Computed example of a mutant assay.
Amino acid sequence: MTLRTAPTALLACLALVAGPAASAQDEGWTWLFKDGSLDQWAIPEGDNGHWKVETVDGGPVIDYDARSEASGDKNLVTREEFGNFVLEFEWRIKETPFTNPNVPYVLPDGTHARGVDGEPLKLALPDSDSGVYVRGSSKSQVNIWCWPIGSGEVYGYRMDASLPTEVRSGVTPRTQADKPVGEWNAFRITMEGDRLTVVLNDVTVIEDAQLPGIPERGNLQLQHHGGYRDGKYTGPPSLVQFRNIRIKPMD
C-alpha cells in the first residue's frame, strides 16, 4: 500500500514546489509579470521610478502613479512583439481623484446619445484611465477606465467615423462588467488575425470584433494617461496596478 501511494504523494509535492509558473509554461503560457521582475518590460527613459513594483495583498504588482517624467512616450512596453495570442492579467484602479466633465453616454452602436437640444450628452464623473495597447497600436487599445460603458472597449476604432457601423458597434462593450474602484478585475484578451475578443471578469464584453488595418505583430503597452501640474491631475490619470500578466502566443 505504501509503495503504491508514495509516487502519487511525491508527484503532488513536486507540483506544489513547481507552482503555477511551471504549469503556465507547460501549457504554452509565458509569464510577463508574476514574481516581481520587470525584465520583460522596457521602462520609459527618464521615468524616474513612477512605473514600479510594489507588494499588495502579499504579492508583487506593477504600480503606476501617472506622473512619469519621461520626455517622450510614457507607456510601459514589452520587449517582445506578438501576433496572435491570448493575454490574461489582473488590474485595478486605485482611486479616482479627477472628475472628468466630458464622459459621453455611449449607445450600443458606438455613437453618442444626444439631449433634447441635439447636442451630445456629457456626464461629469470621477474617472481614472488606462488600458493595454495590442500589437503596439494606440488605436487598438483595450480600455481600462470608469465610464458607464465599461472597460474593454476599443476607443480608437469606436470613434473612427470612417469605419462601418458594424465595426464601431463591435468594439462597444455589450455590458459593464467592471468591479468597483479598488477591487481587482480580470481580463482575458484574444487577438487572432484582425479579430478581438475581450472577457472581463468572466463576462464576454467584446466578441470577435474586427479591427481593420491592425498590424500583424507588435508589442503590448500598459498605457500612461493624464497629466500632473501644480499638485493636481489635469486629466483622468492612470492610477492603476497590474498583476499576474501572462500570454499564450498562437502563431
Score class of each variant (00 low, 15 high):
residue 8 T to P: 01
residue 9 A to E: 08
residue 10 L to D: 06
residue 10 L to Y: 04
residue 11 L to G: 14
residue 11 L to C: 12
residue 12 A to H: 05
residue 16 L to H: 10
residue 17 V to C: 12
residue 17 V to E: 06
residue 18 A to C: 12
residue 19 G to H: 03
residue 19 G to S: 07
residue 22 A to M: 11
residue 22 A to I: 11
residue 24 A to F: 06
residue 26 D to Q: 15
residue 26 D to H: 14
residue 32 L to D: 13
residue 33 F to L: 07
residue 34 K to S: 13
residue 34 K to E: 15
residue 36 G to W: 03
residue 47 D to P: 02
residue 47 D to R: 01
residue 53 V to A: 11
residue 57 D to C: 07
residue 58 G to M: 02
residue 61 V to I: 09
residue 62 I to L: 09
residue 63 D to N: 12
residue 65 D to C: 09
residue 66 A to G: 08
residue 67 R to Y: 06
residue 70 A to K: 00
residue 73 D to V: 12
residue 75 N to Q: 11
residue 75 N to Y: 07
residue 84 N to Y: 05
residue 89 F to I: 01
residue 91 W to Y: 15
residue 92 R to M: 12
residue 93 I to C: 11
residue 96 T to M: 09
residue 100 N to K: 07
residue 101 P to N: 03
residue 102 N to F: 12
residue 104 P to Y: 07
residue 105 Y to C: 10
residue 105 Y to L: 11
residue 106 V to G: 07
residue 107 L to R: 12
residue 108 P to S: 01
residue 109 D to M: 01
residue 115 G to C: 00
residue 115 G to D: 11
residue 117 D to Y: 00
residue 123 L to R: 11
residue 126 P to R: 00
residue 128 S to F: 05
residue 129 D to N: 15
residue 131 G to M: 07
residue 131 G to Y: 02
residue 132 V to D: 03
residue 134 V to R: 06
residue 135 R to E: 00
residue 136 G to L: 01
residue 137 S to F: 06
residue 137 S to P: 00
residue 140 S to C: 05
residue 142 V to H: 09
residue 143 N to A: 14
residue 143 N to G: 10
residue 145 W to M: 13
residue 146 C to N: 15
residue 148 P to L: 00
residue 152 G to R: 02
residue 154 V to N: 08
residue 155 Y to L: 12
residue 156 G to C: 07
residue 159 M to A: 14
residue 161 A to G: 04
residue 162 S to C: 03
residue 162 S to F: 01
residue 167 V to Y: 03
residue 170 G to P: 12
residue 171 V to P: 13
residue 172 T to H: 08
residue 175 T to I: 06
residue 177 A to W: 03
residue 186 A to R: 15
residue 187 F to K: 04
residue 191 M to W: 08
residue 195 R to S: 11
residue 196 L to Y: 09
residue 197 T to H: 05
residue 197 T to Q: 05
residue 203 V to T: 10
residue 205 V to R: 04
residue 206 I to R: 01
residue 210 Q to E: 14
residue 212 P to T: 04
residue 214 I to W: 09
residue 214 I to G: 05
residue 215 P to N: 02
residue 218 G to Y: 08
residue 223 Q to N: 12
residue 228 Y to N: 10
residue 232 K to D: 01
residue 237 P to T: 05
residue 237 P to M: 02
residue 239 L to K: 08
residue 240 V to M: 15
residue 241 Q to Y: 05
residue 241 Q to E: 15
residue 242 F to E: 10
residue 242 F to S: 09
residue 244 N to C: 03
residue 245 I to Q: 14
residue 245 I to S: 15
residue 245 I to Y: 12
residue 247 I to Y: 11
